[in-house]
């Protein structure tokens, strides 16, 4: 296990990366095709920048803690 102590961060990176892609994509789709009942503060497009944040975090964890 000692050699894989970083693997938890790597796995978290993968999940955040996938979630980032999905959430940002949903946010971009919503920008072009506005929903019938938008949420409060919809104009801020939180899905896009929050998805981008998850994507960036995921990418960082994947690279920084990649399993060798």
């Amino acid at each position: 296990m000692k050699n894989n102590a970083n693997s938890i961060w790597f796995l978290i990176g993968i999940l955040l990366f996938i979630y980032g892609v999905l959430i940002a994509a949903a946010g971009i789709y919503g920008w072009f095709v506005p929903p019938a009942h938008p949420v409060e503060l919809w104009r801020l497009h939180a899905g896009i920048w929050w998805g981008a944040l998850l994507f960036a975090m995921g990418l960082f964890y994947i690279i920084r803690f990649r399993i060798k």
Binding site: L22, I23, P38, G47, G51
Partner: peptide, 12 residues
């Protein structure tokens, strides 16, 4: 959550 989170964010 429902108030602010649209598709994707709600799932999260």
């Amino acid at each position: 959550l429902v108030r602010y989170c649209g598709p994707g964010l709600l799932g999260l």
